[in-house]
C-alpha cells in the first residue's frame, strides 16, 4: 500500500465525514469544492476537510483510491458518496439527509430544508 493510500484509509476511518477538496472548508479554492463545503457547513455537519492542493500524493492518491477523476470527493463512514454533482442532487432530493440519518451523522434538518426551499 502506498503512503498516500494508507493516509487516506486512516483519515476516512478516523472521521465519519471527510471532504477531500481544493482549499479548506473555511477557504475553498474551487467552485465545486466550495459548493459541497458550503452545503456541509450550512447543514452544521462535523467533518474533516483535506486540502488536496497541499499534498500532491493525496491529490492523485484519492483519485486512484476512489476510481474517481475529480475533486471534491465526499466520504461518509468510510464509503465514497460522490463528487459535486452527486452531492448537489442528493442535497436537493433529501437523499443526503437520509444517508446522514442512517449513518448516525448529526446535521441541521431545518438548514437542509432551507437549502431545498431556496433551490426548489
Amino acid at each position: 500500500m502506498s503512503d498516500a493510500e494508507s493516509r487516506i484509509k486512516q483519515t476516512i476511518t478516523a472521521n465519519d465525514v471527510v471532504l477531500f477538496m481544493k482549499g479548506t472548508k473555511a477557504m475553498p479554492q474551487c467552485g465545486f469544492s466550495s459548493r459541497v463545503a458550503g452545503v456541509l457547513n450550512y447543514m452544521g455537519v462535523d467533518y474533516a476537510d483535506v486540502n488536496v492542493l497541499e499534498d500532491d500524493g493525496i491529490r492523485q492518491g484519492i483519485k486512484d483510491f476512489s476510481d474517481w477523476p475529480t475533486i471534491p470527493q465526499l466520504y461518509v463512514k468510510g464509503e465514497f458518496v460522490g463528487g459535486c454533482d452527486i452531492i448537489t442532487e442528493m442535497t436537493l432530493s433529501g437523499e443526503l439527509d437520509q444517508m446522514f440519518e442512517k449513518s448516525g451523522v448529526t446535521f441541521d434538518k431545518d438548514a437542509a430544508d432551507k437549502i431545498r426551499e431556496a433551490n426548489g
Partner: peptide, 22 residues
C-alpha cells in the same frame, strides 16, 4: 449515481478526461 458517472468517465476515456478541466 456513482455508476452512471463512472460509465460517462469511461466512455470519454482517460485522455479526454485529462483535457477537460471541469
Amino acid at each position: 449515481r456513482i455508476a452512471r458517472h463512472r460509465a460517462v468517465h469511461e466512455a470519454l476515456g482517460k485522455d479526454l478526461m485529462g483535457r477537460i478541466h471541469a
